[in-house]
Computed example of a mutant assay.
Amino acid sequence: MSANDHAPTQLPVITAKGDLDADTLPSLDAELRAAVTTASGVILDISDVTFGDSGFINLLLRTHQDTELRVVGLGPPLDRLFRIVGVDTILHIFPTVTHAQGARQ
């Protein structure tokens, strides 16, 4: 066995920005679905998201059920929403993309 046999697989990174609601979620959903067709999981960077509604939470939970979803960059105002809804205890949340890439699957 070579050292590369144990090298972590790099997951695709999708960056979401702005408000995530009924108008913007279909394109994010399509990006996530496309990413997981060729990878064992996906990293979603939400550090530039300013708003997320219940549809966004549902999208995260669906994606989490379908694949290895790693969420990066949780901060205000979404951190409060995640705590209130309880998804902060369900989702795999990391401070940075580097941390998410380095985590074991």
Rank of each mutant, 00 (worst) to 15 (best):
G102C: 13
S2N: 13
T24N: 09
A103R: 12
I84A: 03
H64T: 10
D53M: 09
A3D: 11
T9F: 07
P12E: 15
P26S: 14
D45K: 04
D5G: 00
Q10L: 12
D53R: 10
S2Y: 07
S27I: 06
R83L: 01
A22I: 14
T38S: 15
T63S: 14
F94Q: 11
H92Q: 14
F56S: 02
V42A: 09
G52Y: 06
L32R: 06
H64W: 13
I57N: 01
D21M: 03
G102A: 15
N58L: 14
T38G: 11
A100M: 08
L28C: 13
F56A: 10
V13L: 15
N58G: 15
Q10H: 12
A100H: 09
D88I: 01
Q101A: 06
I84G: 03
I46T: 04
R62M: 13
A7V: 11
R104K: 09
V36L: 08
H92F: 05
I93S: 05
G41P: 01
Q65M: 15
L61W: 05
F82P: 02
R62A: 13
R104C: 01
P95E: 13
V72A: 02
L69P: 03
I93R: 04
D79C: 01
L78P: 00
A39N: 13
A7P: 02
R80N: 00
N4P: 03
S2K: 12
L60E: 02
H64Y: 14
L59H: 06
T15V: 12
L59M: 14
V42W: 06
E31H: 11
T67S: 02
R104N: 07
D48A: 12
D29V: 04
V72P: 04
S54D: 08
P77Q: 09
L81Y: 00
A100W: 09
L44V: 04
Q101D: 06
S27C: 02
V87K: 07
G86H: 01
E31C: 10
A22Q: 12
A34M: 01
F51M: 14
D66F: 03
P12L: 14
G55D: 10
L91C: 10
G86M: 01
V13K: 10
L91E: 10
H6Y: 05
A39Y: 02
L32Y: 05
M1V: 05
D21F: 04
I14L: 11
L11K: 10
L74F: 09
A3T: 05
V87W: 08
V36F: 06
D66P: 00
D29T: 12
I84C: 04
A16G: 07
D19R: 12
T15H: 10
G52I: 07
P77H: 08
S2P: 07
R33I: 00
A100Q: 10
P8Y: 08
F82T: 03
V13H: 10
G18L: 14
R83E: 09
L28N: 14
